[in-house]
């Protein structure tokens, strides 16, 4: 692989690699399919949404979640790769947390699944650590000047998840109904939880 090498179509490169590796007995289609299906169907932001909804309705759980995110998240059965140590950051009317990985694409897989395209894109990674208020405005989140902004760059094995504020007018909602309001974007800190 040299910088002078001609660009190979990525889909074709993947097919060529898969073909060589499978010939050598190093991968097989069944393993690939099982692996991919896990992240398409069972591991995704719906897991994090359950964590958030439980924290909104159970103050003891909320306290445990903020004290030891990894353990409290594991109580709901969510653990695995990219979740060895998860720290939960609480957003409030006065503090707004937002998460990035400037060096690659570190992300808390057990609760949020695989990162979305915008999170891995150089525009987000370069700018959120330099002009977060402006970037959040571009995403549609206009924060009051009084709100303290805290940006977290995931540079070690620690993974971060944001606990968004519970939307107003949701007092009578069940935990399940609340989970439906929690978006992936809110748990990264680039949006608020949806209003009902």
């Amino acid at each position: 692989m040299t910088s002078a090498a001609e660009h190979l179509d990525p889909a074709l490169r993947v097919e060529a690699l898969a073909s060589l590796l499978s010939e050598r007995g190093l991968i097989d289609e069944a393993i690939i399919e099982r692996f991919v299906k896990t992240y398409e169907q069972s591991v995704g932001p719906m897991n994090g949404a359950k964590v958030v909804a439980k924290a909104w309705t159970d103050s003891d759980y909320r306290a445990r979640l903020l004290a030891d995110g990894t353990a409290a998240i594991a109580e709901l059965g969510f653990k695995g790769p990219q979740g060895e140590h998860i720290v939960v950051l609480e957003n409030s009317p006065t503090v707004h947390n937002v998460v990035v990985c400037t060096l690659c694409s570190c992300y808390p897989w057990p609760v949020l699944g695989l990162p979305p395209s915008w999170y891995k894109d150089p525009a987000y990674r370069s700018r959120i650590v330099r002009e977060p208020r402006q970037v959040l405005r571009e995403f549609g989140l206009d924060l009051d000047d009084q709100v303290e902004v805290r940006v977290h760059d995931s540079s070690s094995e620690v993974r971060y998840m944001v606990l968004p504020e519970r939307p107003a007018g949701t007092e009578s909602r069940s935990e399940e109904e609340l989970a439906a309001l929690v978006t992936r974007d809110a748990m990264v800190g680039v949006a608020r939880a949806a209003a009902p």
Partner: peptide
């Protein structure tokens, strides 16, 4: 430039991306 739009898109767009992830 601008950050990408927030969309609830699934983790993989085209089929080859699924296999790329696994490899």
């Amino acid at each position: 430039g601008h950050v990408q739009e927030l969309t609830p898109a699934p983790p993989f767009g085209e089929p080859w991306e699924r296999k790329a992830f696994a490899i």
